[in-house]
Amino acid sequence: MNEVLLEIKGLRARAGETEILKGLDLVVRRGEVHAIMGPNGAGKSTLSQVLAGNPAYEITGGSMTYKGADLLALEPEIRAREGVFVAFQYPVEIPGVANNYFLRTALNEHRKHKGLPELDGGAFLKLLREKMKSVNIDSSLVSRSLNEGFSGGQKKRNEVLQMLVLEPELALLDETDSGLDIDALKDCATGVNTLRSPERGFVVVTHYQRLLDHIVPDFVHVLHQGRIVKSGTKELALELEERGYEWIAAEAS
C-alpha cells in the first residue's frame, strides 16, 4: 500500500457555538481519490475550511496528520506551500488584485519554500497559458481582478487553474461541481484528471454522483452529522444517487 498522505482521527471542530465535525476519521494515501458525499449541513464545507486552516473554525478535538506532521500546528500558508490545496465552494472576489499577479506571487512563494528560483513574468505567463488551455479558461480573465464579475463556472475553473499551477500533493475540491453546466464540469474534471498521479491524493466533496462519472473515485464516504458513517467503493455513490441519504441516516442512528 502507498504511503499515507493525510490521516484524520476523531476530528472535532466548531464555528462559533455550533459543533459541526464530531469525530471525523479519514485516511488518504498517495495515488488515491476519495469522494465525500453527504446531505447539506453534514460538515462537508467545514472539513474543507479546517483542512485549509481557516482561523474562523476552532478545533476542539482529534488530529490531522499530513506527511507525518501535525497539520493543525501549521499556518494556512505553510500548509499550502507543503502541498495542501483546497478548491473552495465559494471562491472570494478580490477587486483590484489581478488574477495573474496573484497567482504568480503564490507560485513564487511555493517555489521559494522549495528552494527553487522564482519565475519571472515571461516564464510564468508561458506556464499559465499552457494550464489555461486544459481548463478552457478564457484568456481575458487572467488579467482581470480575481473572480470579480466571474460567472459561477468561471470561478470554479479559476480554482482548478490555481490547482494546476500550484501542483499540490493533496487537493480537496469542495463542491466544485455545484452550479456547473456539463461543459464546465467536464473541464474541471479534466483539470483533476491531468494532475492524478501515484504521488498525489485527492478528496472530492460533492452532493451529486455525476461529477464522479468524470473523476472516478477509489473510495466513497458518506458524511453525516459531522462523522463518516459509511465508506465503500464507487458503487456506493451510485447507490446514494438512487436511494438518497435517508437510509444511511437511519443505519447510522
Binding site: 485549509a52 486552516g53 481557516n54 482561523p55 474562523a56 499556518e75 494556512p76 500558508e77 500548509r79 499550502a80 506551500r81 483546497v86 473552495f88 471562491p91 472570494v92 478580490i94 477587486p95 483590484g96 488584485v97 496573484f102 497567482l103 506571487t105 503564490a106 507560485l107 512563494e109 511555493h110 519554500h113 481582478s145 490555481q162 500550484l166
Partner: peptide
C-alpha cells in the same frame, strides 16, 4: 478577513497577503 484567508490558503504569508490587498 475572507480575502486574507484565501490568499494565505494559496501560500502567501500574512505580510504578503496584506501587501497584496493594500496594493489592490
Amino acid at each position: 478577513e475572507k480575502a486574507m484567508f484565501f490568499l494565505r490558503s494559496r501560500g502567501l504569508d500574512s505580510r504578503a497577503a496584506r501587501a497584496v490587498l493594500v496594493k489592490a
